[in-house]
Structures are given as structure tokens and as C-alpha cells.
Write a protein that binds this DNA or RNA. Structure first.
Lengths: 245, 245
DNA sequence: AAGTGGTCTAGACCACCGC
DNA sequence: CGGTGGTCTAGACCACTTC
């Protein structure tokens, strides 16, 4: 943590201060669906121009704390109405969010030539070498998923990989920050070997999540496939119909 | 389609026009990572104030078409880096997005007392009456999914329901605009009856998507469960790790 | 008709990037 | 240092909701 400890004094912008003041007002004295003071009132209240008020409100709208109704007013939103875009989380983070303790068991760690699916997904020429990590993922010490991760050798060589440390953290340290991923979710039928690893009936149903992760600039870093026990894992997300914004 | 045919002339706002002009410029003569003309140039070019230019650019940033770099410029984004929040779509829209033609076959239409799962999800007292619609959903005339929809009778009575017309459109016309939904995705094993309806083996795996839809103000409108053939349907989404914005 | 948020102007200065 | 986007002002009129 011995970072450069920026001394920037955090120059406070007016709209940030106004937003904080409004947030405080809401938290201390307003309830969901209550009206926030009008923009013109807020101008007078905080001694700023209307645009500054609007920018402050815009950040709150972004957070989902309030919403605008044209011609009527700005209102406090219901907390559970907030629709955040889904986040890319590690298995450990995902389990923690479900109140479970994550652990792992390495099943295999090897350098392999990418098969066509992996090569295609990662944009590699077929036969390129990849570090392959196969892990049994446990939640509260019971099998939850089988995970196969493929990373190009040029990004993370097998000898560099340190077991027990977060993969994303290691990739970030190597200059490959994972920022986004495309995920494909499908239902599959387990093969008997996977079934026995997961402790379920052979030929049981399971949820397969395939992920291709990329850096900020679109460079593909990781191909991962995780097969979850259908009886222990569901995937949840919020979708919106309009630009609720 | 004999709606009220609003005559609003679609009053075109300047920032919308400017955004369209910039979009056109990008599509016809710029490539990813190219710089867009500066805001001051755009002011002069389109004869509008800076704020209007900025609002136009803001909409394009929202779309992921361009991104700003403070102190440097505004640049065209890479198309595949765009991360849109997942949208709530009707089956017809969903299939159209996959290049398939959607059709339906009504399996049942009845008024029922909500079972505990439906009542809980919709916030109804157990035993409340619900309109239940069970449909076989086809894509390119082949079975794709079985869908059960439950709507409180107080929102849509069974006699009001018009077959063949979009449910969401009917709900909207009744003053219940569906704006967002919580979805739960899981893998299940089909029962033989469902398997035969879908034209797959009994006990095949399938993807189950459960949806609770709400209005702008959080009123729960619809409980739906759709069971998709695992071999014809996958669920895709983009997730981000940081506030990529 | 009064009040709200939405759009728009014509300026100004600040913070940051690259040369 | 010049040019860029980011913040901010003090007005104005438009579009919508509410009474």
C-alpha cells in the first residue's frame, strides 16, 4: 500500500458538494417517493447556478437514488428499484455475496495447445500455448462448480502462476487488468466424471457459464468455463425495459 | 394499429440533431480511436453553444460510440467494447434479435388462485386470483420454450386479455408499464410432459428463466417462468469489473 | 396558470494532456 | 504553452404536469 499517496487535496467541485448535501437531506429526512426540493429552490439554498444543481442531481440519478419526472419534480427512488449493471466477480467474491465461504482444489495445472474453441475465443492462432488451470470450486466446503481457465502463455506462463493467489490479481500485477467479460449461460447435462466430482448424479443437469474476459482496450485475456451444480447455483440479474438511466 | 397516432411532429432538439450529425461523421469517415472534432470546432460547425455540443457528445458516450479523455480529446470507441446493460425484451423481440421468427401456441388460459410461489413473488395474499397464460413459444416454427405467465386479476382480467396481441402492450394500455424485471436463471431437468411439448428427450436439461416484472414505482405486475430448450437457447450478457460507466 | 424539469445561449475560468 | 475537456454562471424559453 506504499502508493504515491497523492496529495491532491481532492479539490471539491461544487456539484459534488451539492450532491452530497442533497444525499444527506434525503438520508436524514426523506422517504422513497418523497419529492426532493425543486431545482430552483436548491439553487437558492446552496447559492449555485441551475446547471450545477442539475449536474448534482444527475449524479444522484446515476446512482439510482432519485429520479426525475418531467413537469412534476424529482423524487427519492425506492432502494430496491435500483438497477445496477451486473458486475464481473471472481468466484470468491461471488460466493461471499451469497454468504458462502469459497475454497478451491486444483485438479490440473498445465501448459496446453489451445483447442479451436479456446483459440477462437481468445483470438489466438490454433495451437498456441495456453496456461490451463482446472479447479474444483467449493462453497462452505461442499462442491459447487468445476472451473477451467485458459490464459495465453504470453500473458501468464505456468511457472509464474502462484497457487492460492487470486488469478485476477496476478493478471493485474502483470499489467493485464480484466475489465469486462462476455458471458454465455446455458444448461447442460453433466458427464459422469463431472457428476462424480460435483457429488451429484451422473447425467444431472448443470449450469454452464462461459466467459471471455478482456482488458480496457479489448485485448482478450482469459477464457473460462465454469460448470455449476444446478441445485446449488442460480444466476440472477436485473433487466430494464427503458433507459431508466 | 389504429392508435391515437400522435401528431407530435417529433420536435427535434438541437442536441439530438448534432448527435446524429456527429454519428454520421463517425460512420462515414472515422475509425475506432480516431479523434472526433473538438467541442469548440463542433460549436462553430453546427452553430450551437458549447453545452449543446456537450450534451450531444454525452448521448454518444452513453451509447458507447465515443469516449472522452480529459485534456486530450474525444475519440471513437471500439464497437466491441460497448457494454450495454441487459434489456428486458419480449419473446418476440428476443427471437428477432437472434434472427428467428417467433410464434406462439396457447396451451392454457385460465383464472387461478395464486400458489405460494406466485403470491410471494407478486406480493399478493395467498389464494388471490391471477390470470394464467401458458404458451408454447416457437422460433422458426420449431418449439423453443414453454412460458407460464401470471398476472393479478386486478391488473388484467382474463376476459380483457386479447390473444395474439403483445402482453406488455396490453398491460401498458391498461396503465401498467413494465419497466424492469428481476430474473433468475437456473438449469433444470425437464419432466417428460414438458420434454414432449418441446420435442426433446424426457429428462433432458433445460434453461429456466423466472422473471418478476415491476412498474416504474415498484408495483409488481407479472410473474413469468420460461423454460427454454438447452440445445436451442443460450443466455448472453456482458459484465464489467469497474465503473466503466 | 403556476410550477416543474428539459433545452439552450454566450460567455468564463479550471484541470489536464502533449509538445 | 496551446488545445482539450470539465466546471460554472446568469440568464431565457420550451414541454410537461398539476390544479
Amino acid at each position: 500500500m506504499t502508493e504515491q499517496q497523492q496529495q491532491t487535496v481532492a479539490r471539491t467541485y461544487k456539484y459534488v458538494a451539492v450532491a452530497a448535501a442533497i444525499r444527506h437531506t434525503i438520508e436524514t429526512s426523506l422517504s422513497p417517493f418523497d419529492a426532493v426540493p425543486s431545482e430552483r429552490d436548491l439553487m437558492a439554498l446552496y447559492g449555485v447556478s441551475r446547471m450545477t444543481v442539475r449536474q448534482a442531481i444527475a449524479t444522484l440519478v446515476d446512482e439510482g437514488l432519485v429520479y426525475n419526472v418531467h413537469g412534476s419534480g424529482t423524487y427519492v427512488g425506492a432502494p430496491d428499484l435500483v438497477s445496477k449493471p451486473p458486475k464481473l466477480t471472481s468466484f470468491t467474491e461471488d460466493m461471499a455475496g451469497r454468504g458462502l465461504k469459497a475454497s478451491s482444489q486444483i485438479l490440473a495445472l498445465s501448459l496446453e495447445r489451445a483447442d479451436s474453441a479456446v483459440a477462437l475465443s481468445l483470438g489466438l492462432s490454433p495451437g498456441s500455448e495456453c496456461t490451463h488451470i482446472r479447479r474444483l470450486r467449493l462453497a462452505d466446503d461442499k462442491p459447487m462448480a468445476i472451473e477451467d481457465v485458459y490464459v495465453p502463455r504470453t500473458i501468464l506462463d505456468i511457472e509464474q502462476f502462484r497457487l492460492g493467489e487470486s488469478l485476477y490479481q496476478q493478471l493485474g500485477a502483470a499489467g493485464y487488468d480484466v475489465l469486462r467479460a462476455e458471458q454465455t449461460i446455458q444448461a447442460i447435462t453433466l458427464d459422469p466424471e463431472a457428476g462424480s466430482l460435483l457429488g451429484v448424479a451422473p447425467n444431472a443437469s448443470a449450469l454452464s457459464v462461459t466467459r471471455v474476459s478482456s482488458s480496457r482496450h479489448g485485448q482478450r485475456i482469459e477464457f473460462a468455463r465454469t460448470i455449476y451444480r444446478a441445485d446449488r447455483y442460480t444466476f440472477q440479474l436485473t433487466v430494464t425495459r427503458d433507459a431508466e438511466k
